[in-house]
Structure formats: structure tokens, C-alpha cells
Design a protein around this nucleic acid. Structure first.
Length: 432
DNA sequence: TCTGGGGTCCTAGGACCC
DNA sequence: TCTGGGGTCCTAGGACCC
């Protein structure tokens, strides 16, 4: 049996923990650059704000409906996530952290009433962290996901599902007829793995509900729509095809890309940005003990600003030998940037991607048989990471990143960010 | 004025091999 | 003039996820 534990409106709920006044208020959390809404409280959803709605299209609701908007505070959400995951782990022996706000649990071998255990866990999370959650249980990951969807919607959309399934829904404990009734009440596009495109094709073929998909012929589904959807069909029938991944596999690519707070035309500014992005990506790479064989740099203007001179370009750089060294990678990235850059264009976004990743311990040496990565470079990078980890990001950086604590014209816009209550001493909440 | 960021997997088609 | 069969690897693009 599987469970899916999921934080409701996670980012918005994290903000409310430290600002109780925001309870009951329509609240959105904005993406980087305060660009669009990436989390919404129930009250904000009730105002008709869609996921991903651009801020400039909804800001009138501040005056008209008391909407509150906050800039994304990822250090805070990451820390709250770790606390949530450690409590959720109490539900069973196997945990897969699936995203910042949800995890799957493997519950095989757990005796007793799983729904009752789940309700107890919800209460503990609410009491200890102040975060609302919903829990879905089922004999496959897809059914656990679906149960979670039912648990959420039975709570917030009365009439969509019977109210007894609110907050915790255990599809594995129901008589088959009752489970089928719930699947029949679920539109096919709500099924995990069925996106917009697939939903349209399924509907055109007359499959409108999760139950219809579950009853479709698996071989036909595989032939017409591929192996992924065929697995979904099996999973909906309660035959698990997807297993739990306890420790995440190492990443196959690592990216750091950002839109700028304002258009950037100067090469000097782009150099700072690309240095910063490469440094961040390399840091992530070293954390997984990896080496990159290739590096990609791109810059582009904003396709939304149709009046601007447009330019979008990228360059893929095969590295002479795999590396995770910030200084080396930055040299290659900056060289690539220089070949891409065209003066007089208002660049809106840039990014660095590390590709062709491999494990540092299985590095292939070149034919020259020279040690490519002298130990002192490794120790330098270890010192860099350690200093930045203990004393804060940006304590030690490359000179081409620009002087720290000076204004950057390429910096993100984050006009409405709350303090980092749990990860920064200066952000500590003061009571009184 | 103003539209995020970071991933994964699958498939089709081309190049190439024997 | 006639022109097989089976396979791998790589890449680009699509679809999906949060």
C-alpha cells in the first residue's frame, strides 16, 4: 500500500505560519522576479486567480479584494519542507520525497487502520508545524495520488466527492464498487500523468473519466498513446507499475537559469550573471559528487516584448576533460558568452546548464594519462563550499561575479519577500 | 512597465554498423 | 535491371511533473 502526503497550498501555508494575520486572507506567492503566481491560498483561488497568472494581470485585486502577494522565499519553504518530510516519515518504513511539498510512503507491513494513522499524522503536522496537509492512500502510486486529489477536493469543493473522504482518503480500504464510483467522478485530466494534450486525445476517443481510462484495453492504449499511459491504466486498476525511489538518483543535468529584474544590454553585467549561474550550478554538481562533460550557455531577449530587437542564442561547449571546478567551468562559460553576445539587445534571461554528468569516482582520463584534477583544486573547491555553507552564500566567490553587496542591474526583483525565519539569525521572528 | 525555474522520460527519425 | 534484415546510438522535440 502507498500513501501520498501533500502540503496544501504549500508556499502560501508556509508564509501563514509566521504571519497568522494572513489566515483567511486571499494570498499568492509570486515566482522569481515577482512575475506570476505560483501558489495561492483557497481565498485567492476563489477570486479566480489561476496557477501561473501574471502578476500585472491580478494586481488590481490588491485594492479590489484585499489580495496579499509575497515574493517567493525558497530558503524558508525548503526548511519547512525538511521538517514536514521528517514528520511524514513516521507513517511507514519507506519514503520517497517526490517534490518540495509531497512524499510517497511505502506502507507494506504496517498493521492496523492506515486511515486512522494518517489522520493522526495530519494532526501532528498541523500542531507541530502549523501546516495543513492531505493524505491519499491506495494500492499504487497513481491511486494514492488520486486519493490525495479526492481528499483535497472533498474538503474544498463540496459536492465534488462525499465529505467523509475529506483530508484523508484510503482507496485501498473501499469495496470495489465504491472505488469505481470515485473514479467515475474524477475527470480524466486529473489523473497523474495525464496532461492537457493527452486529456484532449483521450476525450476525443470517448474516455472522459478516470474509471473509463482504468477500464480501457491496456494493449490498445499502449499502441495508440505509448507505454507511459499503458502503465497508468494498470496503476489505476491497482496493479503497481511504479516503484518507490528512496534516494533520488544523481541528476543527469543541472541548470541555473534566471530572468533579470530589468533588461540587460551590457556584456559586463551578463558576465557577472553567467559567473553567478555557473558557480551555483557547479556547487550543486559537487554536492552530488559529479563531473560535467559539457556545458551550455544561453542568453535571450524577452519574446513577450514584441517591439524589442530580439536575439536568442545558445552554445554547447564540450569540455576537454570533465570538471566540477567553478573557476574552470566559468572560464568556458564566459568564453561561450562572448561568442553569443550582440551589443544593443535588451537581454531578459540567461542560463547555464551542466550536461553529460558523470560520477567523479569513475572519471575517464585522457590519453595523456596526466592527472587532470590536481588535489589542490579539489581542496580549494571544498573550502569554497564549506565557507559558503557555514557563513552564507556569497561569502567567497569569483571576482568576475562582481563585488558582493553592490547593486546588480541583472538581479531578480523580489519586492515583497518575507524574512528567512528559520534559516537566518537576522530573520528570526520577534514576539511582542 | 509587468509573463518562473528545474527537472524526467519517451518517441521518431537519421546516421551508421554488420 | 535487380537492391535485405536487423540492430545501436544519438538528437531533437514533445509531453509531463512540481
Amino acid at each position: 500500500m502507498f500513501a501520498l502526503i501533500d502540503g496544501n497550498n504549500f508556499y502560501a501555508s508556509c508564509e501563514r505560519v509566521f504571519r497568522p494575520r494572513l489566515q483567511g486572507v486571499p494570498l499568492v506567492v509570486l515566482s522569481n522576479n515577482d512575475g506570476c503566481a505560483i501558489a495561492r491560498s483557497e481565498e485567492a483561488k476563489a477570486l479566480g486567480i489561476k496557477m501561473g497568472a501574471p502578476w500585472f494581470e491580478i494586481r488590481h485585486l490588491v485594492d479590489e479584494a484585499g489580495l496579499v502577494a509575497l515574493s517567493a522565499n525558497f530558503p524558508l519553504y525548503g526548511d519547512m519542507s525538511e521538517r514536514l518530510m521528517s514528520l511524514a516519515a513516521g507513517l511507514g518504513p519507506v519514503q520517497e520525497v517526490y517534490s518540495i511539498d509531497e512524499c510517497f510512503m511505502g506502507l507494506d507491513g504496517i498493521p492496523g487502520d492506515l486511515a486512522a494513522r494518517s489522520r493522526h499524522l495530519r494532526e501532528r503536522i498541523a500542531q507541530w508545524l502549523g501546516l495543513p496537509t492531505c493524505i491519499g492512500l491506495g494500492p499504487s502510486k497513481t491511486l494514492a495520488k488520486l486519493a490525495n486529489h479526492i481528499a483535497k477536493n472533498a474538503e474544498r469543493k463540496p459536492g465534488s466527492y462525499p465529505p467523509e473522504f475529506a483530508q484523508v482518503c484510503h482507496l485501498g480500504a473501499l469495496p470495489l464498487a465504491e472505488r469505481d464510483a470515485l473514479l467515475a467522478a474524477t475527470p480524466v485530466q486529473e489523473v497523474w500523468g495525464v496532461g492537457r494534450q493527452t486529456a484532449a486525445k483521450l476525450q476525443a476517443a470517448g474516455l472522459h473519466t478516470a474509471l473509463a481510462l482504468a477500464r480501457a484495453d491496456a494493449a490498445t492504449v499502449q499502441r495508440r498513446w505509448g507505454i507511459v499511459l499503458a502503465k497508468t491504466v494498470q496503476e489505476l486498476r491497482g496493479i503497481p507499475c511504479l516503484s518507490l525511489d528512496e534516494l533520488p538518483p544523481p541528476k543527469q543535468q543541472i541548470a541555473c537559469t534566471r530572468s533579470f529584474g530589468q533588461p540587460v544590454s551590457e556584456l559586463a553585467s551578463l558576465r557577472e550573471a553567467v559567473t553567478e549561474f555557473t558557480s551555483r550550478a557547479a556547487e550543486k554538481l559537487r554536492r552530488q559528487d559529479g563531473l560535467a562533460g559539457q556545458l551550455l550557455v544561453f542568453i535571450r531577449t524577452s519574446p513577450f516584448r514584441t517591439g524589442d530587437r530580439q536575439h536568442s542564442a545558445h552554445r554547447l561547449v564540450p569540455l576537454p576533460h570533465p570538471s566540477s571546478d567553478t573557476a574552470q567551468l566559468t572560464q568556458w562559460a564566459l568564453a561561450a558568452l562572448h561568442t553569443l553576445y550582440r551589443p544593443g539587445h535588451p537581454y531578459a534571461k540567461a542560463g547555464v546548464m551542466l550536461l553529460d554528468l558523470q560520477d567523479a569516482h569513475t572519471e575517464q582520463f585522457g590519453l595523456a594519462l596526466e592527472p587532470e584534477e590536481p588535489t589542490h583544486r579539489h581542496r580549494l573547491m571544498a573550502a569554497l563550499d564549506s565557507l559558503n555553507r557555514h557563513h552564507g552564500r556569497g561569502t567567497l566567490l569569483l571576482a568576475s561575479a562582481g563585488m558582493p553587496h553592490t547593486p546588480k542591474d541583472w538581479a531578480m526583483k523580489q519586492a515583497r519577500r518575507t524574512p528567512q525565519y528559520t534559516t537566518d539569525w537576522t530573520g528570526l521572528l520577534v514576539a511582542g
